[in-house]
Structures are given as C-alpha cells and as structure tokens.
Design a protein around this nucleic acid. Structure first.
Lengths: 348, 348
DNA sequence: CTGAAAGCGCTTACAG
DNA sequence: CTGAAAGCGCTTACAG
C-alpha cells in the first residue's frame, strides 16, 4: 500500500487523467514495473515467460490498449505508414492501396493516404505534412519527383519503397515491373498478329505512360517500322469518354491505322464502345489493346486484349518489404520485378 | 543566460533529443514563453497582435512544424479523422472518400481509412483499433451496425457523422439522401414510361440496397402492381460480370419482364453489354436502369438511365459538419438531405 | 493578456 | 532478465 497516496479514489484538483487504462495500471495489476509491461507487450528483449504471461493476462483483464501518441512521442516513430498515389479515380491505384493497407493493418500499422494529383508541388506539400507525423514508413508511386520532394524523403530517414516502377540505385527500394518492357511486349503482340500501322494513344502523360510509349517505339523500330510510328498524346486525364474521342481522332487523322495501343484500359474501353457506336469493326478494321486489365475489360464487346499488371501483388510485396525495412532487417532483393502478362482476348 | 546549463552545445549523455525544432526553440527565438507560442500558433485565446507576429516570424524562420504525437498526448485528441467505408471496389465510396479527404486535409486533419467489407465484425475491429488513436472525429457509412460497434462509437465521445443514409434520432448526425425514395422515384420513372412488368435486381444486399428495393415495392404497390413485384437478390458482391448473369437469369425466369432496375450501375453496365452480346434489344424489349451514375454509364450502348447520387457533395458537407462538431460548434441541421436526380438516358 | 508548473502515457538509456 | 529515472514535445489548469 503506497502511503504517499492517501486517497486514490479522489482525483487531485489538477488531474488531467483521461480515464484510460495505462501501462502503469497493467504493471500494478501484474505486480511488475511498467518497463517490463512495455517490453512484454511489444515482445522486445527476453522477458521471463512467466512474467510475460502474467502481463498479458493483466492487460487483457483490464482491456489495456496502448496509446499510439504516447508511443510515438517516446520513441520518435509513429505507427503510421504514409502512402502517396497520384489519383483515386484510377482503379489501378485503388487496388494497389487496398492491398497495401490490408497487409499494413494486419501488422498494426495505420495507413495515411496522400493523393498528389500528378502534381509535383502537391506531392511536396503532402510529403511535408506527412513527414511531420514521423511515419514509420513511406510508400511512393513511381520514381520521378521534384528534387525538393526527393530531398524530403531522403532527409527524413524514413524507410521508403517505390511502387509500380523499378529503380536501380543501391540504397533505394522498389517493387513493380518494367513499364517500358510491357509496352514493348503488347506492341509486339500486335505486330506478331500481322498489324503494321500501329498507333500509340495516351492520356495523362505521367512517367509510366511515357515509358510504355517508349516500349511501343522500340518494338516498332525493331520491326523496321520506325516510319510508321504514330503517337497521339493527350495531357488530359484518362477516361472512357476521352478514349472514344481519341479513337475518332486517330482514325480521322490516319484512316489506315490497323491497331491502337491505348495506355490505359479506361481509354480502350471507351474506344471499344465508340467503335460500336460508329460501326468501326474491331478487330477487323482496327485492333484495340489496352493496359492494366481494369474491371470491365473482360466484359467489353469484343473483350479487350490488355496487359495484366500485378498491382495487388505489388501492394502486398511492397508492404512486406517496407515492414522488413522498418524492423531494420536487410532486404536481399531491393528491386523486385513482378512482371506482367499479355491477356489475349478478342479485340486484337 | 541560464547558469544551470553550462554547455548547451554539448548534449548530455542521456540525451534523447530528436534534432527537431520544438516549441521551446521558437519561444526562445521570439523571446516569449512556450505557452504563448502554443496559443499564438493555434490562434487560441487572444494573444497580443505584436507577440503573435513575432511568434509567427520565429516559427517560420526556424521552420517549426508541430509534433502531432505530442499534441495528441497532451490534449488527448489527435488530428486524425477516421473514415469507415464498406469497400474500395465500389467507385461510389472512392469518390466519397476523395471528397472527404480533400476537405479534411485542407483543415489540417489526417484521414484514416478503414475498410469494413460489409462485415460487422470487421467494422467492430477496425473501430476499436481506430478509437485507440483518439481520433478527433469519425465518419461512418450508413446507420446499421452491430450493437457493440454502436456502443464503441457512442462510448468514445468522438463526434461522428453518418453518411449516405439519413438518420433521425436527436444527438446523431447524418448527411445523405433517402435511398428508399430514390428507389421509388426511378421505379416510378419506369412506370411513367409505360412499363408494367418491372423487376428489381440487386447484389451485395447491404442496407442501402434493400432500402432501394423497398422503394421499388412501394412504387409498384402504389401503381396497383403489387402482384407483378419481381425481385432477384444475390448476396454476391456487385460487378459487371454479375450484372450480365443476373440479366440472363431474370429474362429466363420471367421472359415477359419489360424493365429492370439494377441496384447499382456496375450491374446495369454489365447487363447492357450482355444484352448487346445476346441480342436483347434495350430499351425496346426491356428497359434497363441503374443507380449511382458511375463512370462509364454515359458511355454505354445505349447510355444508361440512372439515379445520380451526390456522393461528392455528401463528402464535402459531411466534412464540414464534422469539423463544426469537432470545434464544439452547434450544427443547426443535423440531418442533411442532399437529394438525388433521375438521369434519363436512352436505356429506358 | 501572459506564464511557471505539472502532466499526458509511453520508451530510451543506463545500471545492475 | 528487470527496474528507477528521465525525457519525448506538447497543452491543460491555475494564477495573476
């Protein structure tokens, strides 16, 4: 009985007690020191098995839930993982996010989502605000960003994994696939099926979209079709409606086009529907292929040939890699290529 | 000069300093006390204008960024707002989330996203984990939840706004529209255009989907068509592919069906594409309408008649309402009906 | 309008 | 393997 606490039922006048069950409460219940409780609950260092059990029992009995704020303040590291993606309107990123978040939440991390709208200044602002929360880890989309944003990341010392593209510098980490190679492969698929006047039609024009375009050009060049390279690049955001517009534009500017590679499935889906509306025969007059295998592509008329990209796997693996880094473990494969797959359907 | 700090350049051996610029640094720079800096920066209480400026200048000069963890620990309230949504695969919720997050971030709140997968147990678990973070506010989808989840929310004392549906109990807050009334209105639209054998086809079967079905039944009953009520309810998750399957099933079970009201646009889009594939004339043989006006519905063949739902406005208004509650302000309209709109297109 | 003191609930760094 | 002390960076509750 602590004699110094004459009446513990009566809160002191200056009390700011929150009514929470704290580590100290658990310690008292278990008859050990608070530090031991802290260690037992985190599984840190060796705590005698018997004590461990007593602590667990006490924590459960009291319904103890650790306070993340106190933990963050004391350890200078929060349980947050900040995730930066360009846009929520692209199903691709939503699926990536969903996979990331699922893994991270299981391991007790909270996901903080930052949407950059493909804007370097916005990315920088979001990054600055997130870093103030001292996240335990960081996931960012792609490799290209402003020098200031890159410096913020590097200077923070927060473990960071890049997704969707593959980096190569030592000391950096990435999980993705070669956008360029995927663009090359789907173009090659069109060439293999006899198409010659292949166009590349893209919107948004983010780095990955441009890399796919490079792959397209490489395939054309390798096939001796450098002269037939046709690119229609629109800076507007990608959408089904825009896909229809760009199909019409392509066919009016270059009526002999016999295949179109759209940089994203939403454009291709819109193009397929526009073709139906306009009476353009797909794939007879023009083959159409997309990228990403988004929901609905298999339902189109005809079903859309596309590149299946492993964003769910990317999310899961990136989460695993980041968790290893946050635990201070070494990552044997810092740049993880998860590949892609050509999904041949009836539109090509 | 504090004589008790003989050599402030040399960190003590027990130092845990993080290298951060702290309130105390700003206070020293501005020549005021830390409390004054705290108040000036938060705009709390009246701080002399001149001091305020000095503090601001010092903070800017030093690049001071408040530590959210310290703030949360001291004030027992974080800058997080937890948002609970059923699924990320429904574009509806992604758009809602985007709108919410945009507003909240502008006001300095961080959004914590919890996906419940329409599972009460999962909702409860997510809630429990989020509440440990002492969020400043809470946004939850719909009104139905387990008693335990409801008790968690209520017991936490955290301000909470319900979205997508309209509550009525005093002391609760909601922003949405009447799902039932919207279901009734779109059914009435079909009846008004001469359809009689109208079916309601739904998936997922969450509360809002069932409410739309009630509206459908009410309209049928009022038209004296209670005997013609046809409901096809699938517990599977909603998708375009399922929409095609359910269309076929409806037409094979009740070939004289002259209109179908799908509970969500993805189902209706899939049905429209299946109809095209099967040679079912829409709207001649069967009219098709959807719900939510999702991306792509205007691109269908024929374009899909649907109910436009104001999720972006709901997100924005819910954020505003929650921010008022978090500031302790009174909300004059605790249940905000944002309505809906019938979007008549060619599929009906 | 401003401040000195205490405290929020944890973990780190040392010591044994 | 365990613990007493200090401290993380703020804000609350008083007092003036």
């Amino acid at each position: 009985m602590p004699a110094s606490k004459p009446n513990s039922d009566e809160p002191s006048r200056r009390s700011r007690a929150t009514g929470r069950v704290t580590l100290a409460d658990v310690a008292r219940e278990a008859g050990v020191s608070p530090i031991t409780v802290s260690r037992a609950l985190r599984g840190e260092r060796a705590v005698a098995a018997e004590l461990c059990e007593r602590v667990q029992a006490a924590a459960t009995a009291l319904g103890y839930v650790p306070d993340p704020a106190a933990r963050a303040l004391a350890s200078a590291r929060s349980s947050h993982v900040a995730v930066l993606i360009p846009k929520l309107s692209n199903t691709l990123f939503v699926e990536l996010l969903d996979a990331l978040q699922r893994q991270l939440m299981l391991a007790g991390y909270q996901t903080l989502i930052g949407v950059t709208h493909y804007d370097p200044a916005e990315e920088e602002a979001v990054l600055r605000s997130f870093l103030a929360h001292r996240p335990a880890g960081l996931i960012v989309t792609g490799l290209d960003r402003s020098p200031a944003a890159a410096a913020l990341i590097h200077g923070s010392g927060v473990p960071c994994v890049h997704v969707m593209e593959l980096a190569s510098e030592p000391g950096s980490y990435s999980v993705g696939f070669s956008q360029r190679e995927a663009g090359r492969a789907i173009t090659q698929h069109l060439l293999d099926s006899g198409r010659r006047r292949v166009a590349y039609v893209a919107a948004q024009l983010d780095p990955r979209t441009l890399q796919r375009g490079e792959g397209y050009e490489a395939a054309m060049q390798q096939a001796g079709l450098a002269g037939s390279v046709r690119k229609l690049l629109s800076p507007e955001p990608s959408s089904m409606a825009l896909g229809g517009v760009l199909l019409e534009q392509t066919l009016s500017e270059a009526p002999d086009t016999d295949a179109i590679f759209f940089c994203n499935d939403d454009l291709a889906q819109g193009a397929l529907l526009a073709a139906l509306r306009l009476g353009v025969a797909v794939p007879e007059r023009v083959a159409v292929v997309g990228f990403n295998n988004l929901p609905g592509s298999d339902q189109m008329l005809p079903p859309l040939t596309t590149v299946a990209t492993p964003r769910v796997e990317i999310g899961a693996q990136a989460a695993q890699m980041l968790m290893a880094l946050m635990r201070g473990q070494a990552v044997e494969q810092p740049h993880l290529d998860l590949g892609f797959q050509i999904l041949k359907r009836a539109s090509s």
